[in-house]
Amino acid sequence: MIGTGYFASVDEVVERLAEQGYLASAPVATTVFLADRLGRPLLVEGPAGVGKTELARAVSAATGSRLVRLQCYEGVDESRALYEWNHAKQLLRITAGRDEGWDRARADIFTEEYLLSRPLLTAISGDEPTVLLVDEVDKADVEIEGLLLEVLGDFQVTVPELGTIVAKRRPFTVLTSNATRDLSDALRRRCLFLHIDFPEPELERRIVRAKVPGVDEALTASVVAVVGALRAMDLRKAPSVAEAVDWARTLLALGADTLDEEVVRASLGVIVKHQDDITRVRDRLRLDEALDGAAS
């Protein structure tokens, strides 16, 4: 069996992710199913806040497997991602066995007891079902990609002193990227590619209602319609699903049951995060004009 074999069909993916509060669109569900069946890592790209990391979490919860997370950042290296020798413990061991010969000591200090495993090794070495999340892989340096190739291509890790450790059970692997840097083709071709875009209005309405219980249908529809219009507006930072949910929550807290100029103007900061964008949105939605009309 090559794949991880968590799911039997695409519909089952949709159903079980929904139980965890993750409403998957058709592309997401299909690709998750394929990654599961073919045992390939899943490279997820898309704008911030569409639920890339959340997807890995939902899969791990839906399948009852542990989640191993490697958060990438500039300068993350082998000893943070893969494994490290526990130098302090090795030194103690050498000091403790003062009288023994070098050969015995050497045979002893390079064993698994002195190996600190980091996320990638942890994900591969365990027996239990595992979801490995390599988050924001585009933030890491190019060198790390080379490291990932062995892990993601063959699901094995080579430790020179110990030999090659092959995964007993393949982890379900998710890599996320915000595309700040172009990933190398070598890495891309080992993965299934999934671009999560902003959801269709219908799906987004369902997401908002699931995340914010208590918000009524009409208000949800208005929120999604406005957020959709803002996305078409060519802003510096288009509002994402996360922002739509936040906004719905804010409106609920403000006790608004319909959208009007007053409410939108007061809460615009929740969905639009740059001053230029706010100016542009006010302009386009004619917020100020409408206010003048009311004042005169």
Partner: peptide
């Protein structure tokens, strides 16, 4: 969607 996942590398 499945073929896109296997064949494409960029959005």
């Amino acid at each position: 969607e499945g073929l896109a996942a296997a064949l494409l590398r960029r959005a």
